[in-house]
Design a binder for these strands. Structure first.
Lengths: 348, 348
DNA sequence: TTCACAATTGTGACCGTGCACATGCGAGCA
DNA sequence: TGCTCGCATGTGCACGGTCACAATTGTGAA
């Protein structure tokens, strides 16, 4: 009864079919949950599959159906907490839906590197893209290459039509800024992220809007690179002229670097200077003092991104609804404006 | 001259062949850099490819050649800095060599989740695997499933034959511990990682070896979960009996949480207690005080992992040589044993 | 010119799966 | 009994590459 099996090659549906005494097409039907198959036949085929340790060949399937069931993620190179976390969430959601995920990390930010990474993903015939490196130049390349594939981008600025989603960065920045204003601060400095990142730009915008609303003035924000090291150096620079009582940093890493500089200068936080960050990375609650910051649910963002992408790909009818709300987490790094600063109010 | 092009489907080598007036096989030869092709023919074909925006179909290629040119990465779920960084390095190296990378994040640590993730990768017909979740149970599953694919694991304990590589964790832990001993500390506590992680186990082993070498005794290490939160709570617990002058934490996050607890208790670091971490994550140099820790080059580790995997896959002859050396980075969180502790030496 | 031989190009089958289109078979009904 | 209809299954080809082998062209020496 037992025909001989292929020895050097993986079993195919035809091998399964032969052993089960059916045609390859019937086996294919089992694989695709076709409704009209006799239960006994199906059971027999499933059993043979089990015996043979049969595993469908995705390449063949992709070739035949013209669908790769793969999505691509384009991320910025640095191992930042937020993006990483979102990537993990996307992968998880995708896997659950039977999709494969291909990731490409952006080495540099030059157009060639971006194009390289994109080409790599397109070579894999991805059916959709998630962009987690929402830098302007990435969109430039996307438009120039005239990508035929739907994509979503983890951003909230609404600049690039509706395919943008994430926690509302502007709102988060406004909340952080308002918090400092409510504490009595009038001289607030913004330590911004790289402005070619939509997120950085949005956070700065939120900050400026709120400053404006309160009829305050501020220095031109310092443009950083997201890193703790930069936060440290920016802090040293800022301390050369101490005409501020609070700093809103565009992310937690820079805020932590800033705290370091303040400690070096023997300044008290929040006694002399208040600091607020953005993102709420896990160590933010354990800095000294614990960092007041704006929390984002990166897992939810990732899940929402994938759900939205599925919609864009026409693979899902349910349009994910609620945008993700940022949340202010008040900890020890922010406090009332120091008394010594109060007289200065007259200046404005 | 111009034949009509397919409208709804991507151009294939046959389309290119037709327009270039050659056979499909000649086009294939161009794609595979076959030596004997007339230069003029090749140029003509390349030009047609350009015009048609031709892109080779990876699925078809994989099916035909029986090779997917894809490797899989199995990582632990949490968005930790080190693993993330290594993943990025692996992806980069792989892309450079024309490989695709499929990642699977381990949601939970239960065998079912592990098997799930592995199955997912195997479904993609990966040609090799990198395991960045070196937990014992992962290896259990690997062995049970009798994986037919070569794999390497980012670990250094040498427990699972030669396919293990990373910075030498034992050595790193010994360096950290020796550093504290050299500073005069005699009562050193280890805040360990989860012991089903090989790395955590190796770091604990290094610690115990060095303690033993110095003829010291120590409490049983506290078994943590890598998180800053745990470090904080462990610190609170430790402070209930203050019979130690230094703590070696198995990673930086836990060390930072510990610092937080020490600050809460108004203890001075390193005046009252010295703290040493492991990994040298970017914020480690900006904690207060800046954290003494053991630096690992995660990028190099990732590159080495991929190179080794290529070797295992028989795709490369050059065996990568040097293991990666950990490096002690002394910062402000470690200092001489406090005078108040010196008399206690008599106790031992 | 002719032949051997290398360089270049073409032909047809095959990889594993899914689709379109038969075909077989049994139930229900007149 | 014959017919229709729907379920269950089979047949052959297409998908877009690569491989083995055949065929053609070009080159240099006899």
């Amino acid at each position: 009864m037992s025909a001989d099996l292929p020895k050097d090659r993986a079993p195919s549906i035809r091998d399964v079919a032969r052993l089960a005494g059916v045609s390859h097409q019937t086996v294919s039907r089992v694989l695709n949950d076709h409704p009209s198959i006799r239960a006994t036949t199906k059971a027999r085929i499933l059993q043979v599959m089990e015996e043979l340790q049969y595993r469908p060949n995705q390449a063949a399937r992709a070739l035949s159906k013209g669908r790769s069931r793969t999505i691509g993620i384009l991320t910025a190179s640095s191992a930042q907490y937020g993006p990483t976390r979102s990537v993990a969430a996307i992968e998880d959601a995708a896997r659950r839906q039977g999709y494969f995920v291909d990731t490409a990390n952006l080495g540099g930010a030059d157009p060639a590197a971006i194009e390289d990474a994109l080409e790599h993903l397109l070579d894999q015939a991805v059916e959709g893209l998630v962009i987690i490196a929402p830098q302007e130049r990435v969109f430039d390349v996307l438009e120039r290459l005239d990508i035929a594939v739907p994509y979503v981008s983890l951003q909230s600025t609404g600049k690039h039509d509706l395919r943008a989603l994430a926690a509302d960065q502007i709102l988060g920045a406004k909340m952080a800024t308002r918090h400092l204003i409510d504490l009595g601060h009038r001289e607030i400095v913004h330590l911004a992220g790289p402005q070619d990142w939509n997120e950085a730009e949005a956070r700065m915008r939120g900050f400026l809007l709120e400053i404006d609303d309160a009829d305050l003035i501020t220095h031109p924000p310092i443009l950083g690179d997201w890193s703790a090291d930069f936060g440290y150096f920016a802090g040293q620079e800022l301390l050369r002229s101490r005409d501020f009582s609070a700093v809103f940093a565009a992310n937690d890493e820079m805020a932590l670097g800033l705290l370091h500089a303040l400690h070096d200068a023997r300044l008290s936080v929040p006694g002399d200077v208040s600091v607020v960050g953005f993102d709420d990375i896990p160590v933010a609650s354990h800095s000294w003092p614990p960092l007041t910051t704006v929390h984002q649910d990166f897992d939810a963002i990732g899940r929402l991104a994938f759900a939205t992408l599925l919609g864009e790909m026409g693979m899902s009818e349910e349009v994910p609804s609620a945008p993700i709300a940022p949340r202010l987490v008040v900890r020890g790094s922010s406090g009332p404006v120091p008394v010594s600063r109060l007289p200065l109010l007259k200046r404005y």
